[in-house]
Amino acid sequence: MSSPSSSPVPTGQPLVETKDLTVDFTGGARPVRAVAGVDLTLGAGELVALLGESGSGKSVTLRALMRLLPERRATTGGSIRVDGRDVAALGRKELARFRGGTVAMIFQEPGLAFDPVYRVGDQIAEAVMRHEGVSRRSGRARALELFERVRIPSAATRLDNYPHEMSGGMRQRAMIALALACRPKVLLADEPTTALDATVQIQILLLLRELQREFGLAVIFVTHDIGVATEVADRIAVMYAGRIVERGDCRDVIRAPAHPYTRGLLFSRADHAFTKGTRLRTIPGSPPDLTALPPGCAFAPRCAEAMPACSAGVPEEIAASETHVARCILLRPGVQSRTDATAAA
């Protein structure tokens, strides 16, 4: 197996395209803008990792793509096009076909995503029957085929298991089988390995990478773990306070992070950072309160290189390399970082 270093450039229309996507939650005492303008483009056979901490808006972005947010309490703005269709304009029946048929999702807790009172095989067969109008028998046959594909040992007997009879790793494999049951083009993965043990996590990551290549899936993979993103992603988008602050080729973002937040995350995680007897380099402060964001760059209050201009307005995306952009004014021509200035003096 070789690493999927260079995915084919998508020809024609991208599979997923969001423009200025915003999500506001209006149910609470104060409205919260969880996603504040996300532009995301994804072609077939491409895997992008959305990387961010809790509250950065990565899971909400994912749910908006499938219209899973409660419509009365969440207002979605901007445009979402998936496979050439406007997701906001889908009618009820179209939406039901779209979910599972075009876009499927796997969740962090497979134990909660399955119905506990039905056999796992029947749940997969039901999805195939509903979407493709086939018989129960061929639904089961497809379920068996998928169980073998995701490498569940003794697949035929496992189809008759209830979710609680499976271990965590096996449930996540079954979840992947369910997601792939109706041959979707786009797979959304919301922290699919966070609840798993280390030796199981790597198995699931490798399986996802393999299936993604085999079926030519477009995958959006949400994670908070830089290591996990590095293992699977072609491209990485780093989110902070509802915006993508840096995005680009996986190698570029990991090797030469351009945004101070990404740098902080990397420096606090990289192998050499964990040397005994040293102190960890940290990002001061805590993740931002979305109801009271500072003006301009939301990361400025925690940034060691912040300057007055940071509060003037949200920084635009500026190219850091040919395949890599970031929202930081330090990348503007002529702006000198404070640390550089002291080094020069």
Partner: peptide, 19 residues
């Protein structure tokens, strides 16, 4: 099993199978 931090040196084979 620890995820690699080097995009050019990814894990190619899971060290263990099963749970």
């Amino acid at each position: 099993s620890m995820p690699s931090t080097d995009p050019d040196n990814r894990t190619l084979e899971a060290p263990l199978f099963g749970d």
